[in-house]
Amino acid sequence: MTRKVKTIVLTGNGTNCEMEMAHACKLACADQIDIVHISELLFGEKRLSDYNFLNLPGGFLDGDDLGSAKAGANRFLHARIAGSSEMLIENLLKFIADGKLILGVCNGFQLMVKLGLLPALTGNFTKQSSTLTFNDSGRFEDRWVYLKANDQSPCVFTRGIDTVYYPVRHGEGKFVPESAAILKEIEKKNLVALQYCDPTRAITMDYPANPNGSTNAIAGICNETGRLFGLMPHPEAFLHHTNHPRWTRETLPEEGQGLAIFQNAISFIRGKDF
């Protein structure tokens, strides 16, 4: 019997892409898909340990008022499960220790980075070592970008992907590592899973193909096991060819390119390496 894929799509406090993220999991044939409000975790009604694939969707946690996902990360770090001595963060760390998968998109990626889940070079998942900050343009923008995957990356989500085209929709997507040493380490370990590129597949720092001025055109990174992955672009916004901005003029397969990320995650969970 193959392993059941139990996905949890976390929402609440300003998250807003939970519907399409859950839909992506559904199209990728997950066995169970629960959209869970964070209060359900905090009140112990739902438990992270009952799932093996955590989706952290995009949105504006607490309005991103203190910097993107900062207040959200603060809640994750310090909130207690009601009526018990458990901390939410302990449950999350256990989830990671169990080798389960986490995908953070946009605000979900920002949350992972600000918590310290990514890149987590020293294996310390609660120490922030990079950040996602304001786009060089100083503005929020919605535009589609080309992305090149790193075939050397341990990332399980981007396996088999060469280039993809997804929308970005953010004001704080510029990846900045704490130091040159950390950047070097991230790159050496091939934790950079996706980079912004131009239509000819060349990695680029030029606006708008690189929409935010991200260091070394980094669009998405994973941890060393490849099981935690975050990216600024929105794969869940390209599940059907009619999502593509030029679908009325190009011949495209019906299935959108975003689905691959979710299919990879789900087949990994079903596979023997999980």
Partner: peptide
């Protein structure tokens, strides 16, 4: 461009 016109995933 400064308005998100495709959140909710149903942009056509």
């Amino acid at each position: 461009r400064q308005y998100d016109h495709e959140v909710q995933g149903g942009s056509v």
